[in-house]
């Protein structure tokens, strides 16, 4: 887990579309420029997170796979 992020979101064990919906919810409570680190176990979230960020204009700073878990860092636009 990236400890430098402003906030973290544990979406492990959740399946499509919950990781995206939870990410959206967490981001809406944050200020522009803040970062959110999301941990997910849903393999589908890898492409979905890219699409979500592209569509909403939030920046996907990193997207990593570590031991079956996906870690994303998103900066709120």
């Amino acid at each position: 887990m990236n400890t430098h992020a402003t906030q973290t979101l544990d979406a492990r064990g959740m399946n499509c579309p919950l990781p995206i919906l939870r990410t959206k919810k967490a981001l809406s409570a944050m200020s522009s420029g803040e970062t959110l680190a999301i941990t997910s176990t849903d393999p589908g979230s890898f492409k979905d997170m890219q699409a979500f960020c592209k569509q909403t204009g939030n920046e996907l700073l990193s997207s990593n796979q570590e031991q079956g878990e996906f870690v994303y860092v998103v900066r709120k636009s």
Partner: peptide, 11 residues
């Protein structure tokens, strides 16, 4: 419900 909630998350 999946498509509606996801579309709304996309703005």
């Amino acid at each position: 419900f999946i498509l509606a909630s996801t579309a709304s998350a996309l703005g």
